[in-house]
């Protein structure tokens, strides 16, 4: 059973945040030991394992990037290590940004750091928006389309680099 099924949601990138909350809470209640006081220890252990899976499922599906990574792996990938090639221009940009970050941090330029973080977060949101739209297209018709999945992989790799840069800024 995949995380979507476990939380009784359709296997799709477009997750209704309210439905996710409701489902997680009601299922968590169902397996909570307080409601199983007469259960055998075997049953309790099983419930505990289910609860652990529910927690994993919830944290994975709640966060768009992790949800996208998870859904792509369900659809058969590719994973980041299977498709790591990125356009050299993009990697050069990442290098440039790293240099800028280093300089801003060395000069303790709080304004520049805040501005960069805002810009990177905006870029990341934009790419995630594109990932969402591509997934919607996949849902509709292209589930088996390798090219579309490669496009998503490439966008998620961009997000990985952007997250790395944002982490750098905050360190």
């Amino acid at each position: 059973m995949n995380y979507f099924e476990l939380l009784e949601l359709p296997t799709s990138y477009d997750v209704d945040p309210d439905a996710l909350e409701r489902s997680f809470l009601s299922l968590s209640r169902r397996y909570h030991p307080d409601f199983h006081q007469l259960a055998s220890s075997e049953e309790l252990a099983k419930n505990q394992a289910t609860q652990a899976s529910l927690n994993d499922a919830y944290t994975t599906l709640k966060q768009p990037f992790r949800r996208a990574e998870y859904l792509l792996s369900l659809l058969g990938g590719p994973s980041a290590s299977e498709q790591k090639e990125m356009p050299p221009e993009f990697l050069e940009d990442v290098l440039e940004l790293r240099l800028e970050i280093e300089e801003a941090k060395e000069s303790e330029d709080a304004l520049a750091i805040a501005a960069m973080e805002e810009r990177l977060a905006r870029d990341r949101d934009e790419v995630m928006g594109r990932v969402g739209r591509t997934f919607t297209r996949l849902d509709a018709a292209e589930a088996a389309n390798v090219e579309t999945r490669r496009t998503i992989r490439s966008d998620l790799n961009i997000v990985r680099y952007l997250n790395g840069l944002i982490r750098d800024l905050r360190e």
């Binding site: 050299p88 990697l91 990442v94």
Partner: peptide
Amino acid sequence: GTGVVGAPECGDVMK
């Protein structure tokens, strides 16, 4: 000759 490569898993970039 220039080579720029990266590891998306960890975000490392090498030129």
